[in-house]
Every structure is written in C-alpha cells, then in structure tokens.
C-alpha cells in the first residue's frame, strides 16, 4: 500500500539568471515499510525533492500524497500538524535543540503532538539507541555519533509512518556512520517505518530496498 506518492511534481525558483527548475516532473510511489535511497551528484535536486516529499516546501506544480493526505492542499500549519503525527527526520547536521537535554530533545515531538507520556516514552527510546546514561546531557556535551543517535531516537519516538533522512552519516566517520546506519535499519525493521533517505554514501544506498538516481532535477 502506498504511503508516499508524488504526482508530476516540479519546483521552480527565481535566480539572478532567471527561473531555475530544481525538480522536474518527478513521479514517485513508495509503499509502507519500504526503504528508499535517493542518490545523485551535488546539485541534482535530492534535498529539494526530500523537502517537497516531507512537506517542508511546496511544489510549483504537481501533488504529494503523504499517509493518504494531499500535502499540497494543506497550509503551512496543516502540513506541520501532519508532520507531527506521521513524519520523522534525521539530518546531516543532527539539528538538536542546543538549549534542551538529550531527553528533552526526544520528548519534543511527542509534546508537540500533545502526548502525556512523553518522558517515559522518550527515555525508553533513548535506551533503545544505547543512550540511557546520557539523558541529562546537552547536545554540546555529546559526540557526533551520540548526537545522531539522539536524533534517531527523536525521529522514531513518535512511531512515524515515514522517516526522512538527509545525509544521516555525512558528518560521521566511517565506523560511527556504520553504527548509526545499523540502528536506523533496525528501527526501520522493528517499527515498520518507511525510510526515505538522501545520500552520497553508496554503501548506505545499497542497504536500502530501492535506490533512485537523480540528476538535473529528474529521477533516472
């Protein structure tokens, strides 16, 4: 069953040289539980496509359906609410809130969704990524690998339908990157979450069920 569907989406921006099409008529259909890698050279439009699929940005034309909802028909707050309920994110730069502890960072999406059991649930998820002892630490007190594991815990804690990851291992050394990937796919398998990730890392792409190649704004 399809959980994420793009129907002929394009994204055009205005640049000093005139209009520039970054994503060009992309068609995509991803089933629940699937893991998909989007690969391609720098500037191919991978991150923009990810942003469009996750509802962080809106396409100039075309439609995106996420968990049965037409993203392009929702306003900014409507898309935010849908993300709170159905979507998780992992970023290359981790993007933890510096003012919050590891535990509070993981609690954040649960609290945004209005969940009352946020603390217990977040503690449990941190334990799952092996950071039970680090709950009270602030991001700057954690190593890069630990920060990304907190980010993974934050992404999975709401049991999202889809997890989007943008270069999740890009800021990590090979060994740490591998450990984070193992964890990502374990969670993907255990929680039956659909994973869509953008990467340069061929090894990581190879571990996904499907790899889509992108170049010049089109899917090959």
């Amino acid at each position: 069953m399809s959980v994420l569907k793009a129907e002929s989406i394009s994204k055009e921006v205005t640049s000093p040289e005139g209009p520039l099409t970054i994503v060009r008529e992309v068609e995509l259909d991803i089933a629940a539980g699937e893991s998909v890698a989007i690969v391609g050279p720098s500037g191919a439009g991978k991150s923009t496509l990810l942003a469009l699929l996750a509802g962080l940005d809106v396409p100039t034309s075309g439609q995106v359906w996420l968990a049965g909802q037409n993203l392009t028909a929702l306003d900014e707050d409507g898309r935010a609410r849908l993300r709170a309920e159905r979507v998780g994110f992992v970023f290359q730069a981790f993007h933890l809130v510096p003012a919050l502890t590891a535990l509070e960072n993981v609690m954040l999406p649960l609290e945004l969704a209005g969940r009352r059991d946020a603390q217990a649930h977040a503690t449990q998820t941190l334990e799952r990524v092996g950071l039970r002892a680090r709950t009270g630490h602030y991001p700057r007190q954690l190593s890069g690998g630990e920060q990304q594991r907190v980010a993974l815990a934050r992404a999975f804690v709401t049991r999202p339908a889809v997890l989007f990851a943008d270069e999740p291992t890009g800021n990590l050394d090979a060994a740490t990157g591998k450990r984070v990937c193992d964890l990502l796919f374990d969670l993907n398998r255990d929680l039956q979450t659909t994973v869509v990730l953008v990467t340069h890392d061929h090894a990581l792409a190879a571990r996904c069920g499907r790899a889509l190649h992108m170049d010049g704004g089109r899917l090959a």
Partner: peptide, 8 residues
C-alpha cells in the same frame, strides 16, 4: 520545531 510539527 516546525519540521517536527510545531505550528507558527
């Protein structure tokens, strides 16, 4: 916060 689902 918005990415994680917070409204404006």
């Amino acid at each position: 916060m918005k990415t994680l689902g917070a409204t404006r």
